[in-house]
């Protein structure tokens, strides 16, 4: 465990600007977003989390995967598109989002298939997270057993201790940085403070919102009557999935002129009707019912079965931004047998 005076930290961070691009939470009209930082003072007093999730840095909303040229009388020329590989520091990531990076790793950097673009960005990015002290009302990481002080997924996690940060590393890269000045080993006083904070969050993290039934047979979960009810108010827009740090579904389409083309990957959403629609018109998930069921079960059943972790980190973006107040927490409660009100 290490520590650093806040002023010294920001000086150090500024010093990194020469070699690296730095993205930090910046307040825009619409909310906080990870945007390029060039060293000016960061306004973080009202910062709970960014509006858009951190996945954007590794898996951007759209990017070209390949390019081609179709010149008359010449064979088509096809080239791989090189992802931007500029070394990057992501500062101010919240622990929930940091965890989401580890989950995306399992998808895009699997044992058999690896996504070149994702992986190159991932390897070129150094993640410095900020532990949460005041979660928003929509935050529910602790209901999923995730601590607001968790360092998983961060190269370095900073914990606010007033005039200084306590600093913890979760990677070798992070540990190497912390061993050098201006970071110094944590004083016993700082460690005590951290332990006190941890005690509070550990108590809260006891409960899990993920109900037992989701570990059971799919044939039973799939036919529960709640799927016939909860989907009705959903607009089938992409807010929840686009703002979700772990949703990773995408589309691939070609954008072309007469002589040039690029194959573009763009975020897609299981909430959209045409997501699964065949060329013939047949659609295995024809209504909102099947799509909501897919989203919930993908996060809380299929992903855990395939990748050994729930694909939700409790950041609450989907809860906060859903136009009709569809609240995933209520769905989990109902799956767990709680028959409360009509809000679902």
């Amino acid at each position: 465990m290490y520590e650093i005076l806040k002023d010294d930290f920001f000086l150090w961070l500024k010093g990194q600007l020469g070699q690296k691009e730095i993205l930090a939470p910046r307040l825009k009209e619409e909310g906080y977003l990870f945007l390029p930082w060039d060293g000016e003072e960061l306004e973080l007093t009202g910062y709970t989390n960014t509006l858009k999730p951190v996945k954007d840095a590794f898996f951007p909303q759209w990017e070209a995967l390949i390019r081609y040229r179709m010149d008359k009388g010449k064979p088509v020329q096809v080239m791989g598109e090189n992802p931007a590989t500029k070394p990057l520091i992501l500062f101010g990531v919240r622990p929930c989002d940091a965890r989401s990076i580890l989950l995306l790793d399992r998808v895009f950097n699997g044992p058999k298939y690896k996504d070149q673009h994702y992986r190159e960005r991932r390897e070129n990015t150094f993640v410095i997270s900020l532990a949460c002290s005041e979660p928003a009302s929509t935050c529910f990481c602790q209901d999923l057993g995730i601590s607001p002080l968790a360092k998983e997924g961060s190269d370095i996690l900073l914990v606010d201790l007033g005039d200084k940060f306590l600093a913890l590393a979760d990677t070798l890269k992070g540990e190497e940085i912390l061993q050098e000045r201006p970071f110094s080993p944590a004083t016993p006083g700082s460690m005590d403070k951290f332990q006190a904070l941890q005690g509070v969050s550990r108590q809260a993290a006891a409960a899990s919102l993920v109900p037992e039934i989701l570990s059971g047979e799919l044939s039973q979960v799939f036919v529960l009557p709640l799927w016939d009810e909860i989907y009705r108010k959903c607009l089938n827009c992409g807010v929840c999935t686009y703002l979700c740090p772990t949703c990773h579904c995408f589309d691939i389409s070609d954008e072309t002129t007469d002589t040039e083309g690029r194959r573009v990957r763009s975020w897609d959403s299981c909430m959209f009707g045409n997501f699964t629609q065949h060329g013939s018109g047949h659609n295995p998930r024809p209504t909102g019912k099947e799509r909501i069921r897919q989203r919930v079960l993908h996060k809380f059943k299929y992903f855990p079965e395939n990748y050994l972790a729930v694909a939700c980190v409790g950041c609450g973006r989907c809860v906060a931004k859903c136009p009709v107040n569809f609240d995933i927490r209520e769905v989990l409660k109902r799956l767990g047998g709680c028959q409360d009100d009509m809000s679902m």
Binding site: K52, L235, N236, C237, G238, T241, Y242, P323
Partner: peptide
């Protein structure tokens, strides 16, 4: 972000 919430609402 082209989530189409405006259109769907």
């Amino acid at each position: 972000i082209r989530c189409y919430a405006c259109r769907n609402a």
